[in-house]
Amino acid sequence: MTGRVFLPLLRRDLLLAYRRRSELLLPLVFLMVVVSLFPLGVGPGLQVLSRIAVGVIWIAALLATVLSLDGLFRGDFEDGSLEQLVISGHSLPLAALARVAGHWLVAGLPIVLLSPLLALWMNLGEGGWSVLVISLALGTPTLSLLGGIGAALTVSLHRGGQLLSLLVFPLYVPILILAASAVTAATDGLPYNGQLGLLAAALVAALSLAPWAIAAALRLSLE
């Protein structure tokens, strides 16, 4: 009974995302615009850009994630799908995991795929490219999971999006520090496995805990 919820929900979410594919592009375009504004703001000196590249790309990735997270549960909340899901008796944490997985596939994965291009724009050192991609691949699912908690908590509020960013950015700080430190270490030719290991550990922790937190927050929001 409880295991049947993941795949149908994921399939539905991907189909819905496909129907509104133009909306999917917005966070990505946002990401690219934010990154491309930095050379204009701080000057196009290659040395400066290399120094700030990781930070800029990662912060833009955080912003783009939060931007796309706002609607994660809002649609389901407003049209009654969430009630139906709760009534169906399926495991709500598993349903939450399916929704977050769908969110990452359409909002997080494109950031990972786009990151080499962003690294080129920002003149990131050669050694840092692969580590940047790995750090995003490990980090963006964690961002989706942690952000899912915030999205579930704010789903019933008007203008919940603004509160959402206040709620989740503090949670994103450790991820940002670890990822930036890993990529900087790689460009400096230093070992970076420790930071990547901690990013992976954060992902595992978020994977195993966040779905329950999201489910609890969703139940709370329905009341």
Binding site: R4, L7, R12, R19, D79, G80, Q84
Partner: peptide
């Protein structure tokens, strides 16, 4: 309920197929 739990972007058949898979 008052909110019917239909997805606006899915067709009638797709909405029902989702419910069928879910239940």
């Amino acid at each position: 309920g008052h909110q019917l739990g239909l997805k606006d972007d899915l067709t009638v058949a797709e909405n029902l197929a989702f419910h069928q898979a879910l239940t």
